[in-house]
Amino acid sequence: MSREEDIYEEHVLDHYEDPFHRGDLPTATHAHEGDNPLCGDVIHVDLKIDDDGRVQEAWFDGEGCVISQASASMLMEKIEGLSLAEIKQFSADEMLQLFGPRLTPNRQKCCLLSWRVVQSALHAPVEGGQNDDRDGSSQFGGPSLKEES
């Protein structure tokens, strides 16, 4: 089996088809949404952060490729119960490790979308309106799909 096929290993497809906490969280204290206009991947994250600065609940919704959606599911599962400091320390490299299969630079971007949205959500308390970075104000600085420029 080639490396590319490994990307779609069982663990990944399981998360894609049976995601952890996919949906809205009406009691969210923090929320953010981001997309990758080049792929059309969209991830919305709702977090409920308690007074001690710990994530009680993490939910996501969105659409896109297997990598973007499965990695979001894995990340929601991972960050529930973590403190803000722990999440802030959770690096992009650790996100790629959490996902598992090795990804080419272009697909790393899909995997890191939810990670980027979570990092922004920590600074985006819900105050009546939702936050949104689709205007491109906080574009991901990782490897890009140059071919699409």
Partner: peptide, 12 residues
Amino acid sequence: VHAHDVSQWLDT
């Protein structure tokens, strides 16, 4: 199926 997954599978 997202186009990237189609492309990735065809690449294999």
